[in-house]
């Protein structure tokens, strides 16, 4: 049986993990490779690295980091943040990333999804969609949620699948950072509309939140950052709990 995936997300700046990561028994939690390795040992199913630096010099740092991650990690990982072109993608995939995620650049220029999917295969193209509830509907937002667009989230999800995205990473900005639980109803609506896997993101604050996102929400995977980084919910404990709730996990 296919398992539901638990995916920690690491924010990267200038080749280091950002925020005061407080990971138990890790000497240098600022080193993405050490942190990633610790997550793998804990039983994380995949990892997402999100680069929040935008400078050209930082891109090369990122590629070198991806090479180091790929050398150490034996689970799949996705790299995202600031990807704008096929050249960016090629460099990251060559460095060993399994998948890349795109966001704002594809909102601005949707044809990019087709280009990347044709060149590299849809299995490695993750479409990150940030959304917020605006004027009584879910709309796509960009620039970390600060800028609303005129795209309806449900339409955009369909469109990215048609254009060749292999997976959707769906973040509700309304829920992100609240620790009050995932956007279950939103995720369900998206999962009903597309035939590609949906990764739910935003709002995880307790192990209990992971149950409805997989059952009612029909998510294929759930992503979180701070609750894992600060050891609030250790992954082994989370998985043991999900098993008691009849959610299939590795």
């Amino acid at each position: 049986m296919l398992k539901k995936r638990i995916i920690p997300c690491l924010d990267i700046k200038d080749g280091r993990t950002v925020k005061g990561v407080n990971f138990v028994e890790l000497r240098d939690a600022g080193d993405p490779v050490a942190l990633a390795k610790a997550y793998e040992e804990q039983g994380a199913d995949e990892l997402v690295f999100l680069d929040i630096t935008a400078t050209v010099e930082a891109r090369q740092t990122l590629v070198e980091l991806v090479e180091r991650i790929s050398a150490e990690l034996s689970i799949p990982f996705t790299v995202g943040g600031g990807i704008r072109s096929a050249q960016d993608v090629e460099a990251l995939l060559r460095a060993g990333a399994d998948k890349i995620s795109i966001n704002s650049a594809a909102v601005k220029e949707p044809e990019l999804i087709n280009t990347l999917s044709r060149a590299f295969g849809n299995q490695c193209i993750v479409m990150a969609i940030d959304t917020n509830w605006i004027d009584n509907e879910w709309r796509v937002v960009v620039h970390g949620g600060r800028t609303p667009t005129d795209k309806r989230t449900m339409d955009w999800c369909r469109e990215v699948e048609d254009r060749g995205a292999g997976e959707i990473l769906l973040t509700s900005m309304q829920h992100d950072g609240t620790k009050q639980g995932f956007a279950v109803e939103l995720t369900r609506q998206v999962a009903d509309r597309v035939t590609i896997p949906v990764i739910a993101s935003g709002g995880a604050g307790a192990a209990e939140h992971f149950v409805p996102i997989f059952t009612e929400g029909q998510a294929d995977a759930a992503l979180a950052a701070s609750i894992f980084h600060f050891g609030e919910i250790p992954i082994p404990a989370l998985k043991a709990y999900l098993q008691t709730q009849n959610i299939p996990v590795r």
């Binding site: 398992k3 199913d45 292999g166 896997p197």
Partner: peptide, 11 residues
Amino acid sequence: EEKVPHMGWNN
């Protein structure tokens, strides 16, 4: 009926 590709961990 399931999603394709088959992506993830399976036993």
